[in-house]
Simulated assay, not measured.
Amino acid sequence: MIIIAIVEVTVIPLGTGGTSLSSFVAGCVRVLQQANDIKYQLTPMGTIIEGELTEIIKLVSQMHEQPFMAGASRVNTIIRIDDRRDKKGTMKGKVSSVEAKLITPGGTD
């Protein structure tokens, strides 16, 4: 059974010798750019990934390694998984559901 999930991941490099982290984030995003069958959205505080759960877990592991390969001495990675099995969930669908309720308060899922 293929489990489609929405995962939020934040990779925080520590011990980098500076305060700018964008080059480390770019390394993590490159992992996602090379992946097949996933969708992702970079946000100011993390990245949202949509796809098959076991594949995402592998990608998150690769993302976690990127700052080490770029010279960080420590990495803190935070993962949140939204795994809904009663119906297909998507990043776009979650946002659309909220937007619909802004137009029609009290709507149902």
Rank of each mutant, 00 (worst) to 15 (best):
E99C: 08
K88R: 13
A72W: 01
L14R: 09
K101F: 07
S73D: 00
E52R: 05
C28D: 03
V7N: 03
D83N: 15
G106W: 04
I103K: 13
L53N: 00
I79Y: 11
G46F: 07
I48N: 08
M1E: 10
R85S: 09
V60H: 00
R85W: 03
K101T: 11
G51E: 01
P105Q: 09
A70K: 15
R30W: 08
T90I: 02
I48Q: 02
I3W: 00
R84P: 06
T104G: 06
V60A: 01
T16H: 09
G18F: 06
V9T: 11
M45R: 06
E8L: 03
E65S: 12
G46W: 02
I38G: 04
I79K: 08
T47K: 02
S97W: 11
Y40C: 02
T54G: 00
E55I: 00
T77F: 05
T47I: 06
M63T: 01
T54E: 06
D37R: 06
L14M: 14
K92L: 15
D82F: 15
P67T: 03
I81K: 06
G93R: 05
G27Y: 00
D82G: 12
I81L: 03
I38Q: 03
I4M: 15
K39M: 08
R80M: 12
V31M: 04
G27C: 00
Q41G: 03
Q66I: 04
V29F: 09
M91Y: 06
Q62R: 06
L42S: 05
I4D: 10
E52K: 05
Q66D: 07
R30F: 09
T19V: 14
P105L: 06
C28R: 04
A5H: 10
H64M: 04
F68W: 02
G51K: 03
